[in-house]
Design a protein around this nucleic acid. Sequence first.
DNA 1: TCAATTTCTTGAAGTAGTTCAAGTTTTTAA
DNA 2: TTAAAAACTTGAACTACTTCAAGAAATTGA
Lengths: 190, 190
Amino acid sequence: MFTALFDHIQKFITLEPSEIDILEACLTISKVKKKEHLLQEGQVCNNLYFILKGCARQYIINPKGVEQTLQFAVENWWITDYLSYHNTTPSHFYIQTVENCELIAIEKSTLESLLIEIPKLERYFRIVSQKSFGAAQMRIKFLFTMSAEERYHHFNNQNPEFVQRVPQYMLASYLDFSAEFMSKIRAGKV
Amino acid sequence: MFTALFDHIQKFITLEPSEIDILEACLTISKVKKKEHLLQEGQVCNNLYFILKGCARQYIINPKGVEQTLQFAVENWWITDYLSYHNTTPSHFYIQTVENCELIAIEKSTLESLLIEIPKLERYFRIVSQKSFGAAQMRIKFLFTMSAEERYHHFNNQNPEFVQRVPQYMLASYLDFSAEFMSKIRAGKV
DNA sequence: TCAATTTCTTGAAGTAGTTCAAGTTTTTAA
DNA sequence: TTAAAAACTTGAACTACTTCAAGAAATTGA
């Protein structure tokens, strides 16, 4: 049931069977249809989401009214707005499923008590978030140093299967160019 | 001596006097001259750096040979390459002081034993890195939604004092435009 | 205190991307 | 099984920036 999450956790720390029980008792699986929102701009983000199955994204609507994806999350990834979560401030982001999803939503109060009961989990979340921060830095590096076409090919090489899973216009915005330009890159017209 | 770090830690967790002693025994202050490197591209990053005084930056040299700053760190900020640190892989980044600095460098092995002696510190680093990740997401949002001029004015409004501390060309690259364009924005010639 | 170095400025020419508008293809759902 | 909706494509016109080159100003250090 939650094995994917337990496996992920045990990559970084070792849980006792009793701790697994405690954890298990706190978790529930949500099935969420494609295109549903887990978080809307302006709401305070009160949950962490762990994707068991499917794909979600974090996006904004820019001043021209166009959606721009800032982050994707697939199986075994956490997604949330940590700034809104920690500061209890309205979020600047939407979080939405891109496919039908099975996910674990952990509420702030649940997580806080879990972290007290199983302090080792602090370590797990520390390592995961430090690695995520590192990945965000690499993302900024790629945005800074590569042309649109290079970003497309690079992403395509690194994530060939993933590219098939999401609409091109979402990927275009994630790579910071227009859907039209993506089309031209793919057609070799650039 | 290390009070700035203790104060920062105690914003998030409460340390016993005995824990402060343990921590204190592990720390040393380094004085580092302006423009010295804490990390070079290609090296494995084995340290976390906490800035007590001064300013440092993380940057890359792009394919055209131009430096681009990805991140600044001033007083009470941690700076490192978490990806290199966790994966023991060569870093893609340089970390360099921008001003004469006083900083605390914690080596990986020291930090690991500290985290075992004072498990509460896991929580501190978790919260700090989750917030940093949140800040990185906001940074990407600004890069995506604002024009060069908007990014400059926004940054200037949010950090008027900081803008005085670093050369314009570094700030220009941090905001992802050329030093020449920065000059034109400031002169109102755009 | 002054020479060297670093940083900043300016204008002209070039370009990697966007925007718009319209049409085509693919997917979805009843 | 088909109509509606969503996603993708195309070309033409445009623009927000870059690049280059050269000079001016500010900062640094001996």
